[in-house]
Design a protein around this nucleic acid. Sequence first.
DNA 1: AAGTGGTCTAGACCACGAA
DNA 2: TCGTGGTCTAGACCACTTA
Lengths: 251, 251
Amino acid sequence: MVHNDLPLYLKIYHQLREEIESGKYRVGDLLPSEEELAETFQASRTTIRNALQELEKDNLIFRKRGKGTIVQEPKTAQNLNYISSFTETLRSKGVEVATGTLTVELVPAPPKVAGALDLERGELVYLVQRTRVAGGLPIAFITNYLLPRMVPDLEKKKEALRTKGLYQLLEEEYGLRLHRAVETIEAYLSGPLEADLLHIPEKMPLFHTVRVVYLEDGIPFEVDISVIRADKYEYKVFLEGRPKENRRSLK
Amino acid sequence: MVHNDLPLYLKIYHQLREEIESGKYRVGDLLPSEEELAETFQASRTTIRNALQELEKDNLIFRKRGKGTIVQEPKTAQNLNYISSFTETLRSKGVEVATGTLTVELVPAPPKVAGALDLERGELVYLVQRTRVAGGLPIAFITNYLLPRMVPDLEKKKEALRTKGLYQLLEEEYGLRLHRAVETIEAYLSGPLEADLLHIPEKMPLFHTVRVVYLEDGIPFEVDISVIRADKYEYKVFLEGRPKENRRSLK
DNA sequence: AAGTGGTCTAGACCACGAA
DNA sequence: TCGTGGTCTAGACCACTTA
């Protein structure tokens, strides 16, 4: 008998989540009150509140003082902007993604990359370049720069990159935890270079994105530069809340 | 003497935040331990932890068991993807934004809008259309559909829309709290219509975004359709964490 | 008035990191 | 081993909603 060693509040979170997703509670329904839940799970109210807080982060519920805990509209319930690779995003939509060209090499960091990764000019970084193919068409050209000290012998994993996403590899093979990222999205027209790489005419609309990924302790770890056919892709962004007031003056 | 009636943990949050931003603690420094903070603020450790949790949401700190609470790299510290209008985003970058054309009227909801806002076909919605001008150039054409029952007499506020953003107006004049939004970003080439609206040639790259905004209780409230000159604008997206594992099986 | 979630206390033990 | 944050308890009072 394996005892699941998750903290109690996470176990309760998972169970409640399953009950919500299984349809036991409908959208708009009230969950049992915190006190009742504490009773049924034989836990303190604090622990229940921790579990509910997790559900709230997932936007599966929202709470109203004096009213209760209400199950959310699932339409908006997947909320977070996770760090997902291009490949993962497409696959989650059911699109088959293959790898066209693939190179892995150690190169001196270009100035902008060195700046983003806090490196000295000329320090070596891993450069991974891939063409991504969906439905037989090359639809994206992806360039990644990675800190070599975090991913030793990356070139030996080259073949793994053909089948799994880069981020999946980083997690599974190197145990890295990607924590945060900042991405800028621009759009422009293909020039001769892009036309050649993606087998498209010039003056087609393209997305150009630059993403810097940080590890848990705030170390910048990876730069991802993607060029994607805009006629084959769209971004979905989840937004939450309004910008905060800047400081209340205490009197 | 006005006593600030914020909850204690929020007061502590604000004070710590100010101390961090004022440079009292440097990046990488450890904050005092939770117990010490409890002592200095004369509060329980639970309350301190609530305050620290808020700082963590802002990505100003991160915590490591056995180590302590560490002040974060400010580069990634603004984390959230807030619901901001085009105007607010540009203004925060120091760009002056003016309004070109502006119309406010009640119209039957187009099918797609009716779907997004949970309306019957043909129900009336407010339609707001604006050209946004920066640096003398029209750079965006923005279309908003709003639930009329939430914004009575919107046409009377028309002039206010010339100077403030729509979202600011919704908050200040109607007391609405925008809670969540989902936005899709696409890119395409200008056709004759866009060329005319924005005074640009055809076949220029444009962003096309569709945003649905939800209120606190999950009611879809507004649809924002923007067409933006891609050569004058970029999106910045903050990403956090990796997609969650799908369910652990309990044994 | 009754019931809900929000805040707060004062304790306790555990898991992890560093010395 | 010691100090840290992580989890958990059993209470208490408050602010808000609904009836």
